[in-house]
């Protein structure tokens, strides 16, 4: 609302640069309101995520991490407050396919082969058959499951299924990735490999990631910011910025890394009382 045109132009470009990817204001979520099984899952959440951030949500089981992710994904709507994604209502962002999501349960389709599962979002987005095949095999290489391309999900172990779900979420290179405990069922070595791969993709494609985990070291290793949530009804108890520079195998043994881990642990201990 400036009188000077030059000034307003400068402001609008300034705004575009700092446009928030996620902007949650006063969002609450009550399940089954007015019924005996009423659950107040989230109370007054304010959260802003800027482009290129890697934000991890951590908190006790049942504190509403998955619920918060579902709000951002517009799979449920808030009981009050607002959720904006890419400066538009979350619903519109969903319809525009602005994000990719990996769920806590793999949610693979038994009736599709592994390849076909990964191709599903690409089919829905109208990719050609050749492009789909190429991308799916790239993704399978990434999660080290190439030899299982033609298998069905019920022939895979839980951890392998989760890797297929991750490949599916990454397949169409969404600019926003929502991941709900994607590495929960993986062994330590695979987990570390997947963490490094995820960080590589995040850096190369300049995506924004919101990631839920129960593992403190994982949260610290991956994130630019760790958000600690309190038990039900979930609120944001504290936010811890993590600045460890480029991650590598050495990072995991870095004293600065351990310091952050301790910091997050103390914050978690506080909310759990």
């Amino acid at each position: 609302m400036s009188e000077e045109p030059a000034m307003s132009e400068a402001m609008s470009t300034g705004e575009a640069e700092s446009q928030l990817v996620i902007d949650i204001r006063g969002a609450t979520k009550v399940f089954n309101p007015g019924r005996s099984n009423r659950v107040e899952a989230l109370a007054e959440i304010d959260m802003a995520v800027e482009p290129g951030e890697f934000v991890t949500l951590i908190g006790p089981s049942g504190c509403g991490k998955s619920t918060l992710l579902r709000l951002v994904a517009s799979l449920i709507s808030p009981s009050s407050g607002s959720v904006q994604v890419n400066a538009k209502p979350a619903e519109q962002a969903r319809l525009d396919r602005d994000y990719g999501m990996a769920f806590q349960t793999a949610g693979l389709f038994d009736w599709r082969t592994v390849t076909k599962n990964i191709e599903l979002p690409l089919e829905l987005m109208g990719w050609s058959k050749g492009d789909r095949r190429r991308r799916a095999s790239e993704m399978l290489e990434l999660v080290k499951l190439s030899e299982f391309a033609k298998h069905h999900p019920n022939e895979l172990s839980g951890g392998m299924q989760q890797r297929v779900a991750i490949a599916r979420a990454l397949a169409f290179s969404p600019s926003l990735l929502l991941m709900d405990e994607p590495f929960g069922a993986l062994d330590e070595m695979t987990r570390e490999h997947m963490q490094d791969e995820l960080l590589r993709i995040w850096e190369e494609t300049e995506t924004t990631v919101v990631f839920v985990t129960h593992s403190i070291p994982e949260a610290v290793y991956l994130s630019t910011r760790v958000v600690v949530m309190s038990p039900r009804p979930g609120t944001i108890a504290s936010t811890i910025d993590v600045d460890l520079g480029d991650r590598s195998a050495a990072t995991r043994d870095d004293p600065a890394f351990f310091k952050k881990v301790t910091e997050v642990r103390i914050a978690l201990r506080e909310v759990e009382g």
Binding site: R70, L75, D96, M101, F103, T105, G107, F109, P121
Partner: peptide, 14 residues
């Protein structure tokens, strides 16, 4: 149906 399968489809705006 598996709820997460339906949610997955919804997340793709299917």
């Amino acid at each position: 149906v598996d709820r997460s399968q339906v949610e997955l489809m919804e997340s793709y705006a299917a």
